[in-house]
Every structure is written in structure tokens, then in C-alpha cells.
Design a binder for these strands. Sequence first.
DNA 1: TTTTGAGTTGTTCGA
DNA 2: GTCGAACAACTCAAA
Length: 478
Amino acid sequence: MPETAILWLRRDLRLADNAALHEAMTTCDRVLPLYIHAPEEESPWEPGGASRWWLHHSLASFDQSLREHGSRLAIALGPTLDTLLRVAGDTGATRILWNRLYDPATRKRDTHIKSALREKGFHCGSHNSLLLHEPWEIRTATGQPYRVYSAFWRKCAPGLTTPNTLDAPDRFAPAPEFQGIELTTLGLLPRKPWDQGLGERWQPGEAAALARARDFIAGGLAGYGERRDLPAVSGTSSLSPNLHFGEIGPRQVLALVAAECGPIDSAAAEPFLRELVWREFAYHLLYHFPATPEEPLDSRFARLSWRTENADALLTAWQFGRTGIPLVDAGMRELWATGWMHNRVRMVVASFLTKNLRLPWQTGARWFWDTLVDADLASNTLGWQWTAGCGADATPYFRVFNPVRQGERFDPEGAYVKHWCPELNGLPSKYVHQPWAAPASVLDAAGLTLGKHYPHPLVDLAVSRQEALAAFERIKTL
DNA sequence: TTTTGAGTTGTTCGA
DNA sequence: GTCGAACAACTCAAA
């Protein structure tokens, strides 16, 4: 009697180095690769529009590669537990295997599913294919979770040796008979066609993820430390959406780095590996502090007085790149057009929202969640809390980015700003990051009228900085 | 056990 | 132009 497994796929849409897939293939004769659509079970963090776009194409790509390996992806609708039970009944499956996720809603659901399935006599197996270390494996000397990155890094760095990875199977196990639904019925693609920019910028799927990782590690790793801060340059790996959807795993990235650089502790690799470990740190924090997507880790910040007057209009201006601060607007327009923003600019726009505009970091996190193709609850939460100063590795409260200064340092010619804000094309680099400071003759020569072609700045940077510092002053001893 | 020093990504000011 | 100091409070790990 052949044994049948359901390979329950979520954010692990790859054939290579997929622990649950490997387990299914080595223990069972028949394997049903199954994606169950149940976004309401991730509430209140159902995937946003850009994530759904990526998911659609990633599922299509994974189905295609399964077909090339003699199988296909089955798709069904939730509720997940009911569906798993129904499919197991229909197919005679006795094993249900998956790779673990770590966001609070999914953890709660998966724990319940696992115990319910076991009660009914199924063999359940959950595996790790998303992280280098499980969040509970890393502890301080006193057994507490880490709250400081450098200490976390020192703990993890010695373990960054060449990992063992699992090869993709040459041929996939045959699937049991099952009638799923069509991918298009999930309605993941936008009804209004706003996704053209995403399609031009990105290619979801395992093959493209591997190619991107290889290209970056062969070509960009050496200069990463210097080039990663320049938003006009493709100096970063851009692997974040691929990693988020599990089209490639961190062990594979580590193995590629080792193959390229030899010893994994080489100085050339360290700046990039530190970023990979930041991702681990974000999952560590989300696991141990599951309230942090909504609540500041530093509870004093719950009492911070955010701006209330005119908040809606200010938020809208920020969202659509109409703040009158060129680097901020360029970043927000890049996000809207491509579903992605350069990391240096993410920090600048986040600092501007939370400090200069003094709007809650949660509103910024929510906008990123809806618009980023790499929206990841762990990384997004860490990033926003870090910038707002209320999270782990507490940002010094006085660290308020000056978007003019940041522009001058990291986009000195204004190439990035001009690409996304072409109305500033005629400005010399001296004024491209602060058009309001340009003399009338310069503005005339550039054919630029502030308030007409490009907005006046929404706030005065120096004044709003002082207001932010004063607001921090008020909560620091409460 | 207690103390001490360092800590991803900054800015401004005054010398 | 450059340079160092100042700008909290707290976590973590080494001494």
C-alpha cells in the first residue's frame, strides 16, 4: 500500500533545499503539493496588493516547474484545517508536511492544526526552510532573547559555516488524484492594472531567484559594503521578495557565498552576511515579542504624542510622494511604481514620517505592508520600530535623518531623485535635494515653479526636528 | 556578583 | 572645508 503525503506549501515555493518537500519525497510514494488560500487566517496582516501580485506569479512559476518535474501544484480554498482534512480523505494521505512560519497569527493557527491533525491520527511534520536558526535556538547567557543586534551577530557569526543544502529532486513523486481550483480564481492580481511597473521590475519564481542570487554574489558582493548605500546604483541584492516567499532560502544564499568567497568569514562577505543575520534577528524578535507589529517594544513610546492636526492630508502626501522633500518623494514614488524601495531611502522616508511629520510608525508600516513586494512582518516591524526609536537596538532618540543631508551624501548628483521626480531635472545638484533653497533665477532656468510643478516642503525640517526631539524628551522618564 | 564599556545605518554646533 | 563633542537610557557581555 503506497503511502501518500500532502506537502502543504505556504512561503516555501521552491524545489531546492526544501526540508518538508525532501521529507515527503523520501518517506512517501505519492505526494500532493498543495497551496491553500486562506488570507483571513493571517488577520490582521493579510497580504497586501503587491504581495498578492508576487504570490500569484510565484505560484504560477512553481506550478510550471512542478509540471516540468512530472507533477503539478494543487490549489484549494480554506479554511485550512477543513481543507486539509477533506483533501486527506479524498487522497488517502496519511502524512501532512510543511515548513514553519513565524508570524503570530500563523503560528497560532498552525499549532492548532497540528494538534487537531494528530488527534485524528495523521503524521504531521513541520520543518525549517525559512531561517538559518530557529528563533528559540538563540539565547543570551541568561536564557533571554536578544534585544541588541551586535550581540546577536556575535552569537550567530561563528555558525555561518558552509551549510548542507538539499538538492532539488530530479523527478517529483506522482501526485494522487485531486481536483483543485484554478490559480486565477484566487483573484490575486489587481482588477485595475496598476501592476505594470512590477512586471517590468521583477521576475518571481525559483529559477529567477537563484539566477539573481548567483548574479549578485558573483558580481556585486565585493562592492556591496560601499555601493549598498547608493540608491541610484543597483548595489543591493534585491533578494528580499524571493527570500520572503521562500523561492530561495538563506542556507542556499550562504552556500553560494561560501562557494564564491571560500572561507565564509572573509571580510568581503561580512557586510552582506550581516544583512542576512538582520533578517534572522527580525524573526527572533517577532517570535519572542509577538505584539510588536502593533505595539512598541519600548512601552514608553505608547505615550508618545503623535501629530493629530491635518494628519490625513500629511499621510496622503507622504504616501504618494508629494511632500516637497525630493529624496522622500523619490523613494515613495519608487515604492508605488515598483513595489520596492532602496533600503537607505526606506530609513529616510520612515524617519521623515515618524519624526518630521510625527505620524505613528504603525501607519507607515501598514502602507509598506500594502505596497512592498517584499512585505515581511518580521522585517517590516523591526525596520519601523528601529527607525521610530521604540524597538530593539534602540536607536538613539536624537537620530533624526535629515533628508537633504542624506541626499547630498548618498545621491550627490541627484540621479536617483531626478529619475523618480523628473520635474526636478533642470536643477543643479546643489539644489536638487532642497529646491526651496534655490534662488529664483535657478528655479526659472529649471522651468520649475514651486507649488505648481513640485510642492513646497510640507514641513520645515529644522523646526520639525526640534519638535520631534521635544516629544521624545517628554516620554523619556515617564 | 558587580562593574564597565560598547552599541548598523545621524545631525548640529562650535572650534 | 574638517573634527570632536554632545545629544538618553538600556541591553548585553566581558572583565
